[in-house]
Amino acid sequence: MLSFRADHARARDAVLTKVSEEMIEETGLTSIQSRVTDQDEYLARPDLGRQISDETEARIRDECTLNPDVQILVCDGLSSTAVEKNVPNLLAMLVDGLEERGFEVGTPLFVKFGRVDVMDEIGKTLGATSVVNLIGERPGLHTAESLSAYLVYEPHPDKPTAKKSVISNIHVDGLPAVEAGAQIIDLVERMHDQRGSGIDLD
């Protein structure tokens, strides 16, 4: 029972605390926000977490690299802890590794109150060929530090979820962040080779 309460407390912390400004700054992420305005709305209105406002659209069109091969997003999702623990390592590895293989990587964005599918709208707005979304997983009873990477080729809001690829369980006792980075790089390459993601991949 005590262990359950401890897990529950960790889960609450992970869900309710925010990703720190320092981390966003140190990792060189450009910060934007979904249509959600506060934590309660984030939990109550998942639909708003998948959208960005017209102003935000205009802003990213203005500030970000357009038509990149790969657009990387980081969302706090349901675990800010997961983002804090894994993203600094993963992001650096990912950007270096993708560029080394000749991909043009877009301006990495941090999406406050972002849900998984926000990647479709942002990817379409920026004209990205593929999008990688690193998002904190719903905390479980084992760890609150687990991150997932969702990947999509040719993002579009109408694309079914089955066409997304996912690498999950990224945390220190699961798939270490650096190894996840290496897997994502290989997966992006496969997606671009085969021009698809999710169920479209061999």
């Binding site: 798939l175 270490p176 650096v178 190894e179 980075g181 290496a182 897997q183 790089i185 290989d186």
Partner: peptide
């Protein structure tokens, strides 16, 4: 020993 073969390999 650890799960980092692909990362180190790359």
């Amino acid at each position: 020993r650890q799960n980092c073969g692909k990362a180190l390999g790359q």
